[in-house]
């Protein structure tokens, strides 16, 4: 449970950091190129999850150039004799989950950035704020609903992920998703399987209620201003 939580949180965070600039570039590209760029981002995800994960596995496997490069760097930096590898451990699970869930973050962010009123950004920059400050104090607050939506649809599937941890994880990579599956399929234990599912459900109710409350508050504020 705690393990799933950490892995999913980290995955969501990394997805957010990678997806934001991607969504930003797509949203600020000339309008005619936007659908094409968006499609390019999502196209890799039309291959089957298993096929995709196997491909990622061969890219990161211990005999791959990438892994050997990482091994060289790791050994020279830490002075350690053994390299834990890029996959079959928690790192593998996180890389895999980020890979699998990235479009879930890019798409909602794009829809928000695309409508962003640029005059706010210009005003902020004109008033002497730095790009970073503009980013954190103008852009992020304005796209907050999309950030929350993106985090929800990234975090929840990552939390319950099954295939990726099974293929890329080590011995400790027991995610709640495979726990539920084991209970239901192998032990035929529907009550415990359902109870575990309910944990997920409660967590979502909480997050969604929070989101709903935030957007209500925002709407009320806009009305007050108007």
């Amino acid at each position: 449970m705690g393990y799933s939580l950490w892995i999913a949180l980290l995955t969501t965070l990394i997805c957010l950091v990678i997806a934001y600039p991607v969504a930003l570039v797509v949203a600020f590209a000339a309008p005619k190129w936007r659908p094409l760029l968006l499609l390019l981002v999502i196209l890799p995800f039309w291959t089957n999850l298993l096929v995709r994960t196997y491909a990622l596995k061969s890219v990161l496997g211990s005999s791959s150039p990438l892994s050997q490069l990482a091994e060289g760097i790791y050994k020279s930096v830490t002075g350690s004799e053994t390299f834990p590898g890029l996959i079959l451990n928690d790192l593998g699970v996180i890389i895999g989950l980020v890979y699998v869930h990235l479009p879930f973050m890019v798409l909602p962010l794009y829809t928000a950035l695309e409508k962003l009123d640029r005059s706010y950004l210009e005003a902020s920059l004109d008033l002497g704020a730095s790009q970073w400050r503009t980013f954190f104090q103008v852009m992020v607050p304005l796209t907050l609903p999309a950030i929350i939506a993106g985090c929800i649809i990234t975090f929840i599937p990552a939390f319950g992920a099954l295939v990726t941890p099974a293929l890329l994880g080590g011995t400790d990579s027991l995610m709640i998703g495979s726990l539920i599956e084991d209970q239901i399929k192998r032990a035929n234990n529907w009550p415990l399987g359902s109870a575990l599912s309910m944990l997920l459900v409660y967590a979502t109710f909480l997050i969604l209620a929070l989101q709903s409350w935030l957007s209500e508050r925002r709407a009320r504020r806009t009305e007050l201003r108007a």
Binding site: Y3, T171, L174, D182, Q183, R186, A187, N189
Partner: peptide
């Protein structure tokens, strides 16, 4: 059995 595996994994 499933519980044992779960404990071993965790």
């Amino acid at each position: 059995y499933t519980d044992i595996i779960t404990r071993v994994r965790a």
